[in-house]
Amino acid sequence: MGRSPTTKDDAQALFQSLRSAYAATPTNLKIIDLYVVFAVSTAVIQVVYMAIVGSFPFNSFLSGVLSCVGTAVLAVCLRIQVNKENKEFKDLPPERAFADFVLCNLVLHLVIMNFLG
């Protein structure tokens, strides 16, 4: 009981620092983050829906969820490559990274459309 306010304060302090640190993130990375959040939340909604109505058109379910997950994964990859602080990809121009991202997305959606049924 005595620890509860302390924990609450700690959590608040943690979110505060997290928000202030995130505020410093470049805008293009924030856009990517928003896009990832959109994809992941769509995937979660579908999983919940499947849990309610059952797995009958299983191929449709798989393609719906995998399109979201695949999108999220590709977006995260793009984020890693265009992040200036990431020294590993400093030789890779962001245009090239974005072109790779677009190409991968096209392939992903082609497969998804095929599998959607």
Binding site: A39, G64, F98
Partner: peptide
């Protein structure tokens, strides 16, 4: 299949999201 419409919607919204994201980015 009516049951699968949410999945179709999710797939197409991801595609639309991809286009919008590309423009915005």
């Amino acid at each position: 299949i009516p049951t699968a419409f949410p999945y179709y919607g999710a797939s197409f919204s991801t595609m639309a999201g991809f286009l919008i994201f590309s423009f915005v980015y």
